[in-house]
Write a protein that binds this DNA or RNA. Structure first.
Ligand SMILES: [Zn+2]
Ligand SMILES: [Zn+2]
Length: 170
DNA sequence: GACCACGTAGCA
DNA sequence: TGCTACGTGGTC
């Protein structure tokens, strides 16, 4: 399938994230200032304190070392434990880049914030996974989903023409 | 889930 | 301006 570039969207797709992390939304759900905030591209930096971070030498044997020319990835033995934590997408009524959309994860160097990419949505859960992807609940109108579950939701809509029964725009 | 390719953020 | 490597989509 053709890869998406910044700002591109697939035909017929009304929300999602492009390769550069740009999000777009159903018309009318996000105003321009909000869209600019939600569209910002962020990169985390290695913590510098975990064991992998303190390693100085590439192993030279892992797939990332062998494929460095095209893969552009750090040696697996040097990959920061904090950066290994996965980002979350948060769906809640309205716009969700608020403080209560943030999450934390325990790592070898303590509790670290996990980035919430934020998404505008309507209250409701993933109907494809029968709400099993809900990891936690923060407040009356807030749900948190693992990112992969949201990708699955989108894939379902794109490939199988799935239509949400709850009105969710995830 | 591992791997690969790619664009480019972030920094020196 | 060049380098490292993060984040992500796509494939296997
Ligand atoms: Zn390695
Ligand atoms: Zn680290």
């Amino acid at each position: 399938m053709k890869k998406l570039r910044h700002g591109e969207r697939r035909e017929g797709q009304t929300d999602g994230i492009c390769k550069s992390g740009c999000q777009w939304f159903e018309a009318g759900t996000v105003d321009q200032p909000q869209a600019l905030v939600l569209c910002q591209k962020k990169k985390r930096r290695r913590c510098g304190e975990c064991v992998p971070c303190t390693r100085r030498e590439n192993c030279g044997k892992c797939s990332n070392c062998r494929n460095r020319k095209t893969g552009h990835q750090i040696c697996k033995q040097r990959k920061c434990e904090v950066l290994k934590t996965k980002s979350w997408l948060c769906a809640e009524v309205g716009i969700s880049n608020s403080a209560n959309a943030q999450g934390t994860t325990e790592t070898s160097v303590g509790k670290v914030p996990v980035p919430c990419l934020g998404i505008g949505g309507v209250e409701g859960a993933c109907v494809i996974s029968d709400r099993k992807c809900v990891k936690g609940r923060r407040g009356k109108d807030s749900f948190r989903f693992h990112k992969k579950c949201l990708l699955l939701c989108r894939r379902g809509r794109r490939e199988r023409g799935h239509v949400s029964q709850t009105g969710s725009k995830i």
